[in-house]
C-alpha cells in the first residue's frame, strides 16, 4: 500500500459517490514516523486508507477529516510533544508533525 494506492482509493471512493477528505503530512521534525507526502484518505462514514503517523494521531486526523467533509474547509493541524492536544493524542515518539486536511471537491 504505497501513496499511489491511497490516492487511487480516494479516487475510487469519489467515483462511487462518497464524500472524501485527504490529509497529508506537510512537515516533520525529529523522529516522526511518516515522512512529508504521506497521505490518509478518509470517507464520511469513517473508512480510511493510509497513515500520517505510527498510529498515534490517526484518530484525531480522521475526526478532523470528517469535519472537513461536513464544512468544506481546509485545516492545518500541528502535533508535537509541546502541544497539549497532541500529548493527549499521544505522539510519544518525540517528533513534531504538521498535517494539511482538505476536502476532495
Amino acid at each position: 500500500m504505497d501513496e499511489a494506492d491511497i490516492l487511487e482509493a480516494a479516487e475510487r471512493w469519489t467515483l462511487d459517490g462518497h464524500a472524501v477528505a485527504l490529509a497529508t503530512v506537510v512537515k516533520t521534525w525529529g523522529s516522526a514516523p511518516r515522512p512529508a507526502g504521506s497521505h490518509i484518505a478518509v470517507r464520511a462514514d469513517g473508512l480510511f486508507e493510509g497513515s500520517v503517523s505510527g498510529g498515534c494521531v490517526e484518530g484525531e486526523i480522521i475526526e478532523a477529516a470528517r469535519e472537513t467533509i461536513r464544512d468544506g474547509k481546509v485545516r492545518y493541524l500541528r502535533f508535537g510533544v509541546s502541544d497539549e492536544k497532541a500529548w493527549s493524542a499521544g505522539l510519544a515518539c518525540g517528533g513534531r508533525i504538521e498535517i494539511f486536511v482538505e476536502p476532495i471537491v
Partner: peptide, 14 residues
C-alpha cells in the same frame, strides 16, 4: 483538492 486533480494524479501514476 479538486476531483479533476485527483484523477490527473492517479492517471499519471498509472
Amino acid at each position: 483538492m479538486k476531483r479533476s486533480t485527483l484523477h490527473a494524479v492517479c492517471d499519471a501514476g498509472r
